[in-house]
Structures are given as structure tokens and as C-alpha cells.
Design a protein around this nucleic acid. Sequence first.
DNA 1: TGGAGTAAGACACAA
DNA 2: TCTTACTCCA
Length: 790
Amino acid sequence: MFPEVAAESPLLQHLNPEQHAAVTLPSEHALILAGAGSGKTRVLTTRIAWLLATGQIGPGNVMAVTFTNKAAKEMMTRLAAMLPVNVRGMWIGTFHGLCNRFLRAHSKLAGLPPAFQILDTQDQLSAIKRLMKQHNVDDERFPAKELQWFIAGAKEEGLRPAMVETRTEDDRRKVEIFQLYEEQCQREGVVDFAELMLRSYELLRDNDPIREHYRRRFHHILIDEFQDTNRLQYAWIKMFAGPGNSVFAVGDDDQSIYAFRGARVGNMADFVREFQVAHQIKLEQNYRSFSNILDSANALIAHNKSRLGKNLRTDQGPGEPVRVYEAPTDMAEAQWLVEEARQLVREDVPRHEIAILYRSNAQSRVMETALFNAAVPYRVYGGLRFFERAEIKHALSYLRLLENPNDDTSFLRVVNFPARGIGARTVEQLQDAARAAGSSLHDAVKSTTGKAGANLAAFVAKVDAMRAETEGLTLREIIEVMLQRSGLVEHYRAERDGADRIENLEELVNAAESFVTQEGFGRDAVALPIDELGATVLRQSPASQGLDPSLPEVNEPAPDYVPPDAETGETLSPLAAFLTHAALESGDNQAQAGQDAVQLMTVHAAKGLEFDCVFVTGLEEGLFPSERSLADYEGLEEERRLMYVAITRARKRLYLSHSQTRLLHGQTRYNVRSRFFDELPAHALKWLTPKNQSFGGSAFGFGMGYPTSRGSSAGYGRSSETFASPPVPPQKAEPAHGLRAGMKVFHAKFGEGTVLTLEGSGQDARAHINFPRHGQKWLALAVAKLTPVP
DNA sequence: TGGAGTAAGACACAA
DNA sequence: TCTTACTCCA
């Protein structure tokens, strides 16, 4: 293919010795320990390009797996830039995306309808709730969320209901519901995310010809972010790894931040042992950050005990110090970072090179408000994504009903939306009828009677008519018809703030349009190939139709380039393909992409990205590290890794901030500065506000502040008081307490001190007092027993 | 019976 | 803040 490309091809230029070694490793199993900013994606993509360019393999012989669509796309883009290959036809994608592709090709063997649909987390939860109601499960004792967690967790361990160990009566009940849930999904022809993985794994495990086929096909299997794989994903990878394959795993144990959803860092050690990995290469040279940032990251992560051990180094100078800011309130914090961001923009930093990171999505609002008020363009990642919005989900439900009338989840979502006189009572009766008849809700409608029955029949007739009407239309036309006939647009037009929703619905048409063109099929395409390369190979044998699993051997490299070909045998309707796309791609890149805007996201979402300037906000005990992680040591280590990820996102400037008070969940919280500050090297930091003693009171200059010790915060109770930002001067002392600034007071624990400032009134009154032996404290006058000293 | 308005509780993340 | 349960009214 590219015979002129020698071992020292231009591809390998600009690689450091470790990267070079990793890229050109012989065909055997390897583990690459790649630190943050060490060029991990580069190594992965160059490795694929090198394997192809040296003619060792063809594009059909590689499988590359990532966790996010973003990472998969990045890999494809970079690869396409290096080599003239049709990356779209290659097996590069997310775990779930590839499993989906696999199951589509073998749906019959997998026991699924060809156009099976995928339940997202929301759908799954509502399916479970529905099931619980039907079977009178006590939702106090078994919250639906918990069951969802339980089911997903079991599947991610590779367990079916019968295989789950039960010790208590509660366990047995949970497994029972798990079993019922499985039956329900099977009946409705839907699969959840975990099922995509598990079903693929089981098919590979139980079907020797299929497994052998893929083993012969994929000579090289490359895995990104290996530290985030769960047990099932690891087992799935093993299915592809035969004697002739090589697995190239890239990971960083210090960036493992998904243990809470089943990721096992231990897979790295298991991999080395079970695959007898001879070559482990560490990439420790960091090309991203200045040393003040890197030193901070290294010092922080050194506090973790369970590590494989790795230290990042850089040739760059120290750069700017890491700036630390303490704010009196979350609003002041937001105000400060908006000011800093504006200053950066004045210094010609592009806005999209400024990232504001936070631990949980709930924290974004204050910052959004501040950015909005300052007229700084910003973009929030995460939160409610395009395909998760209610109006879009409604529209998708109608579309799914067109594709599959037996999709009860979709049926229930829109049976009475827009409202058409079908209430809870009616729906319940319908569900009973369906259950009794063992049929779908759609089919059970026939047996209903009376006025309610007539309403239901009208709904079903409407959808059926829509199906008939959209027959043979393009995807775009189908959606347009659906939007009109369903009454969704009309409904939102009548709503007060429905304009945005209508805009989104229109955007759905665009999304479908770009889906069709992006996938490389013209407007008139009636069918989409499932997988150009895969189908090419499989089509050689009728076995791929799913009945006879005697698949052909594919030792010869697949053709380099297979043009999009509408004539491929196995097809999925554009509608079904689009619905799959909607479930697997949350729609991050939908709308307002490409604007020069400040980037807001959670630390989790920031993984894998890098920016010139990064703000890590809300560094407070209970928030970051989060409350829920503090219970066990491992949780804390994961939080620390999360902080490590946050720090290492920054190239040039890093800002860390925390606030003494924060309005969260409707009430003011008083938070202590995060312990992580104490784990950073002092030489790399620059405190923009005076650093107060850890866990001590505030030494905040202008008198705003609160006691920050955990013990005393309880004494304040609720306070709905909020403060304008930036900090306002303290109110004048309340004479009612009998205290004045400058007065000497006595405290039972802290001894004698001097009142510096007073503020608030009534229950909220507090005093800033300097105790010579204990430093400055903010005390609640309603709680603290203070006696004036003459 | 169904729809709308109001009060109370939850809130890590992502395919 | 957003979602969900409950109550009231047509």
C-alpha cells in the first residue's frame, strides 16, 4: 500500500524516544502508561497510521476503542490528516458505539430485532419505575434510582439476574425486579447501555465462529483510557484477543476517575499479568504545562498511596505561579473569575482557551449568571444535552413509535403529550390490560372500551396514520410530518416560554439533515449501510445474515478504501439509524458550536481536553473533595485524582478558588477550604488573598466572611441571606448585642479576644474576633457565649 | 376523571 | 434550581 514508507517515515518525526518506541512496538501486547499531556492520543493515532503505512495491516484489521465520542472523533480526524484512509469505515469508536455496530450486524444471533432501540439513562429509569408500579414494588424501600444503579452495576460486572449473589431478602427482591426488567426490555425490543456491552460480550463468548472471525479480522486492538474500563469491558476486549492479535492499551492510573461507575484500575495490573505484557512504556514527558502547574499536579498526586508510580516532567520553565483566590461568597468567586477572564481576553487569550471547571453541574449557575451579566460569551458543556431535552425526547418518542409501535416507553411518554384527555387512571387500566394479555400497550388499546378507550384508539390511529403517511419519505420529511401531526409544535407555540423549545425542535430537523449528509448519504438515500468495511467482509458469506455462523476467514487485509456504497446488503432505515445516533451521541456538538466562548464544564467532562487558562472553582471540603467520597479512603483518592485531572488541563495559567459560603440546594453552606490546597507546593502558589490557617477562621481583609470550621457551622442553622457581589462592606454593629468593634470579649474556649467587626442581625449576627492565642474567628453570637471584658 | 397549580425534596458523570 | 407528589377545580 505505501511501500515507499520506511520504518523512519515522516510519521515518526517529532516523537520522543518513548513515544517512538510505543508507536513502533512489534505486534504484541503492550501497556503504555501515559501521563497527562504526554501525547497519548498522538501515540495512539500515530501507531495506527504507522501500522497502516508500513503495510503491516489494512484499515479493516484495526479496532480502536475510546470512551467518549469526542475522543473517537479526535482520533479519526487526526488519522485522516495523516493518511488517505476512509476512517469512517474503520472500527474506531466508543465501546458502546462499536457494540452497537456489532449487534446490528448480528442482531438475529443476539436475539434482538434488527431495528432495536437504545434506552438512555432517563428512559431506563422510567422503564424501571413503570415496572415497579406494575408489580407493586415499594418505592420507599427500593428507590427506582437505586435499582437502576443495581441493574447497571450487575451488568457491568457481566452478571445476569440468575448469577447475582443474594444474601438478604432485599437482594432477592432486587434480582426479581432485575429479571422482570430484562423481560420487559426483551419484549419491547430495547436495550440499555450496559446491555449493548453485555449482549456483545455474550455473543462473542458463546459463538465460536463469530469470535474467531473477529479475532482473525482485528490484528490490532487499541484501547484508550484503559484505566476507566470496567470488568465487562475488559472481558469484552479479551474476546477479541486471540493468539495472533495484539492489544495496545493506553492508560494512566492517576487519571482513573470513574470508579463510582464500575471502572477498575486493577484491570491494568490484570492485563499485564494475563496477557504477559512484555513491554510497558511510560510516557512521562509532559508537553502541555509549565512546571509550576506540573509541580502542583505531581505534589498533589503523590499523596495517593495506590499508584503505579509515575512522575511528569517538563522542559518548559516555571511559568506563571498558580493563583489562589478565596472569596467570601460563591457570587464573589464568580465575579472574581469573570474579571480575571476578561483580563485574559484583554491580553489576547482566545475565549475558548479559558476553561472554568467545577466539581458538580449545580455549581455552574452562579458563574453563568456572572458571565451573562458581564456579557462574556460562554458555553456550558454537560448538563442537559440536546438529545436529552424534554421536547426532543418527546419528538424522538413519536419517531420511535413510527419505527416500533411496541416501544412502551415511548408510548407512555407521548400517549398524553400534548394532552389529549388520557389520564393516569386510563393509562393504568391500559397497562393492566396489556399485562393480562401479555401484549404491548399499543396492541392492548383494541381491548379498551368507553370514552377513555376512544381517546386511546384515537391516539393509536394518529400514530398509525403518521406511519402510513411517512412511508418512503426522507428522514427530514418524516420529522417534519411528525412535528406537525403530533401537535408538538402547536402545543409549544401556545406555551409561554415555548419559543426555545420550538427552536430546538427545528434544530432536530437540522440534526437529522446533517446526520444524513455527514454519514455520506445523499438526501434520497433510502437505506444506510451498517458498516461499510464490516459489511463488505461479511457480505462475502450469507452466514452474516445471522443464521449460519460459518463465517469466512478474513486473513487478507480489507481494501484500503471502500467508498460509501448504498448498495451494501445489510441496511437500517435512516430513521432507525438516526434514533440510534440520538441515543449514542448525546448531542454535545449540536448548536452554538464554533463560537469563541469561555468553556464551562465539570472536571469529569474536561478529561482529555486542555486549555491555556484553567480555573478550578469551588475547592471546598464537602464539595471538592465531595461529601459522598469522604466516607472511605478510596473515595478520597479518586477525588484527588480528579483534582489531578483538573490541574493538568492547564497549559499556561492555573487559577484555584474557593468560597467561604455557598448557596447550594437552596441554603447557605459554610465551607472549609479544600484539603487539597495543603497538598500543593507552596513555591508554585501565589495567594491572591491572605492565606489563613487551615481549618481556622478567616483573615479575609474586608471583613466579609464566616466561621469556616466544620464544627461551628451547625450553629447557624438556615440562612437565606445572600450577598451582592463583589463583597459589600460590613453592616454597622448591632448595639443590641452590646458589642462594638474594638471591644474586648471573653470566650470559654478561645480566651480573651478583640472584636474586629460585627455584622448581621438577630439569629444571623456574627462577630469577627481576634484571639491572640487562636487567631481570628468568625463567631455566631446566637451560639457563642461571649462576655465583655472591661 | 383529567388538567393545572402549588409545596416539598434531590442534586456527583456519561455511553 | 428542577422534579415530583399532592390538592383543587372544571
